[in-house]
Design a protein around this nucleic acid. Structure first.
Lengths: 222, 222
DNA sequence: CCAAAAGTGTTAGGAGTACACCCATGG
DNA sequence: CCATGGGTGTACTCCTAACACTTTTGG
């Protein structure tokens, strides 16, 4: 009865090089030594599950300001060869301007992987990752989670890039902009991003009071 | 480290008396003795989480054929006064023609409660129930879970009744029927339900191959 | 014959989709 | 001056929502 332990594992997403990437760490000890795995660890007796996730997340990335949501709890009795371990999986979104911090964090070998190029992972972590990706794609369409992957100030093209990277398909620029405008959730700034050719206007997200677009009666079926 | 235990708790929904109801059991032992609570219990070391949920469900309702889905894992360190207990919450849907079986099950005092008339429950069970209800309402709109609450054969008015009971609002009969017809997920039977005045045609659900209506490119925004 | 639920179409408005060109800037 | 990404409008289709009357049966 006491031989049942609980961990948290976290699928950490960010946008890098115009694509969706996930942070994985190389295991230094058995089981699955040398394989990559999701960051995670055991829950302490006195801490909440979310606190455990935030603690692991900070140890691994040195980032505190991020989006974190519980995903699913995986509990196959044979998922960990060491014994019965249930894991509560989370997924996190790190803004693209903060994902570089990660390098200087933990001693463990941590790398960003393109979501389409994930190696064989330890335990059932490939399943967890696949489920997180599915959840993220779904949530993108009816919530505003997408904004969590961008810096505070961003251009409309950057925003569209987030949607394209996650959904894995190209979107029509005019339709995308019309829909965003219709939502009325962006505040245009009097600042321009000048690094391409023609400067692009910067915006910031200004509707944290409703996470669900459904509340506004509008969905995001791109 | 060993003082951390894991339970499952299940929000069991059914349709009775044209409304959405939940099964609650009266606790016979402290803590919260005499309060109602969600059915549930500890996970055994060698069983999967879902197997634990099914076992508790069968003990409580004597029903095996039902819809079961994991909801969320609640792990506030103080949610159980006896110590650290994490609970993996599930919700289940029992077809309306099977919910009467429940009476003859466990020795525990079990009762169906109207979702709008829930008493103060033990632990954080009111929170769990509220979350289950929210999930059910959301899933109703883009999946076919609603059919899980009906007998194999049902009338269109019964189907509409399920949607109305869960969403808590009246729907337009003609628009509802047009949309269902458009989905093409019902097989009309050569049988009629004769107990009101004019007989109503019976249908059965015939599209279990796609749970998500999204896969058909159609949503349920009633 | 009457009460009760079953069944059935049309219209107007709004959102989705497809589609092509000019503009401003840095090099 | 030119390459690059920024920015903009229209037309068609389809789904949504609002809305009322006739039919069938049992009592």
């Amino acid at each position: 009865m006491t031989d049942l332990r609980v961990t948290v594992d976290i699928v950490i997403f960010t946008i890098r090089e115009a694509s969706l990437q996930v942070l994985l760490v190389k295991r230094g000890v058995p089981p699955f030594e040398g394989h990559f795995a999701l960051p995670g660890g055991f829950i302490r007796v006195q801490e909440s599950i979310e606190a455990a996730a935030l603690r692991e997340l900070y140890e691994e990335t040195a980032v505190r300001d991020l989006f974190l949501e519980q995903l699913y709890t995986f509990g196959d009795p044979h998922r960990d060869p060491r014994g019965r371990v249930i894991t509560v999986a989370y997924y996190a979104l790190i803004a693209s301007d903060k994902s570089s911090v990660v390098a200087g964090a933990d001693a463990a070998e941590a790398h960003w992987f393109h979501v389409e190029k994930i190696p064989n992972l330890a335990f059932d972590h490939n399943d967890i990752l696949a489920y997180a990706l599915e959840r993220l794609r779904n949530k993108l369409e009816y919530t505003t989670v997408g904004f969590q992957l961008l810096p505070k100030k961003f251009t409309l093209s950057e925003l569209q890039g987030v949607y394209e990277a996650i959904l894995g398909k190209r979107l029509d620029k005019r339709n995308f902009r019309r829909k965003i405008a219709l939502l009325g959730i962006l505040k245009p700034l009097r600042e321009w991003h000048r690094t391409g050719r023609k400067p692009a206007q910067l915006f910031r997200f200004a509707a944290s009071h409703f996470e669900k677009l459904r509340d506004k009666g509008i969905l995001f079926p791109f």
